[in-house]
């Protein structure tokens, strides 16, 4: 029985650690040195609450974990605000260096970007880099909004293909 619980805990950690980590990094910024500690702390809280029977299945486990994560993020920001008066502004788009996997993915994406035809590169440059809306990109390129979606989606498809190869 104890072995079974250990397996469940292992599964839970494997499943939710990356999601919690993503949510925490998005809220605090990946450069924040407290991210890893906070993720571990949240996971401990989740396991503790489950073991104490606080998860009664009223909502899904995902929602349960999400709620604990969000509350802890809010508490962390509140604590930091008290100390620093202002929470540090997270760097919005740091290089994805947080994991070896992410770094490898990033290298593959770069290769895929280089191979893209100019029309796809231009569409994703305007859409993702300049953050223009689909309508604005359509106006810039002189095509329909639907065409912009097609260009962006096809470019993503080609990048994903490179990532899977």
């Amino acid at each position: 029985m104890a072995h079974r619980i250990d397996e469940d805990i292992q599964e839970l950690v494997v499943r939710y650690r990356p999601i919690i980590a993503f949510r925490v990094r998005k809220a605090l910024g990946p450069q924040n040195v407290d991210c890893e500690d906070l993720v571990s702390e949240i996971l401990s809280q989740v396991l503790e609450k489950i073991q104490n029977g606080e998860f009664r299945g009223d909502s899904s486990l995902g929602t349960f974990v999400y709620t604990i994560t969000s509350r802890r993020i809010v508490d962390y920001i509140r604590e930091k605000t008290k100390v620093m008066k202002y929470a540090p502004e997270p760097a919005p788009y740091p290089d994805p260096q947080e994991s070896l996997e992410a770094r490898e993915m990033s290298e593959r994406i770069k290769k895929a970007l280089e191979r893209l035809k100019p029309k796809y590169r231009e569409a994703i440059y305007l859409y993702y880099y300049q953050e223009l809306s689909r309508e604005e990109v359509a106006a810039r390129l002189g095509v329909s909004t639907r065409k912009v979606s097609e260009l962006v989606n096809y470019a993503l498809k080609l990048i994903r293909k490179e990532l899977k190869s």
Binding site: Y93, P94, P96, S106, R121, E122, Y125
Partner: peptide, 20 residues
């Protein structure tokens, strides 16, 4: 996956600007 794609684009605009 999309997050890594967007961050890579954000950090490497030159790769896309060459096509201009």
């Amino acid at each position: 996956e999309r997050d890594i794609i967007i961050r890579t684009i954000k950090n490497n605009p030159a790769l896309l600007l060459e096509d201009k």
